[in-house]
Design a protein around this nucleic acid. Structure first.
Lengths: 113, 113
DNA sequence: ACCATTTATCGTATATTTGCGATATATAAT
DNA sequence: ATTATATATCGCAAATATACGATAAATGGT
């Protein structure tokens, strides 16, 4: 059981779900907020700002980076991260899909809800 | 290990993460798309439209309902679901938080990324 | 060269999510 | 009342995600 059915869905559904999954944790939301506030690269400050161990924060950063929401680069002894706003906005705009579908809907009946 | 640190975060971070989690699965994205297209209550048609067993779809519907993204009501022999657009839009608007933080940021340095 | 600092990765324990068959429940039709 | 249909819930197996100590790797300072 619990065989992975992910690939039985449409590509854009998977993409949007993966984006949602990337931000589906308060720590990752908090990281994005910190990065947005600083607008540039801080490093161990992210660890300081979160109630989690360094290893855990590093793991969350990796996840955000792997989906492209943040960029990272090594600056000497430290690592710098920042939000890739282009990618971020691209994802957020995806939510417009639902409103579009809603407007094009042929059946407008509102029978029960 | 893996003790739940969720409550160590801010309320709005938890709320946004929970919303993201609710849509962090292609099946639930697909369900929302179907509901948006029909704009009203369909029932077993959701099961028909997905590559998953009825029990599994019912579980996904329950998750979307529990967070308030969809509403459901029983219509005789069938169940009807539809998107709660008020709640949906409320959540989507939350993403504006990041852009706001970014604009208010005192440190605008873009040293590395 | 040695040490302190910073960050990434590994290994592992635990928690949560996902998927589905089986079954319960509720209604409609006969 | 019996049966068929539609949906929800239960119980469990498998898959993923989360958290963190330990440790590795890389750099800068002495």
């Amino acid at each position: 059981m619990a065989t992975n059915r992910k690939m039985d869905f449409l590509a854009d559904e998977i993409v949007l779900a993966d984006f949602a999954k990337a931000i589906a944790h308060p720590a990752r939301i908090a990281i994005l907020k910190i990065l947005a506030q600083h607008k540039s690269c801080i490093c161990g400050e992210i660890v300081e700002g979160l109630p989690l161990a360094q290893a855990t924060v590093s793991q969350h950063l990796k996840e955000l980076k792997s989906i492209g929401l943040i960029k990272g680069s090594i600056e000497g002894k430290t690592s710098c991260y920042c939000i890739d706003w282009e990618v971020f906005n691209q994802f957020v705009n995806q939510f417009g899909v639902f409103a579009e579908l809603s407007q094009n809907a042929s059946c407008q009946a509102q029978s029960c809800c």
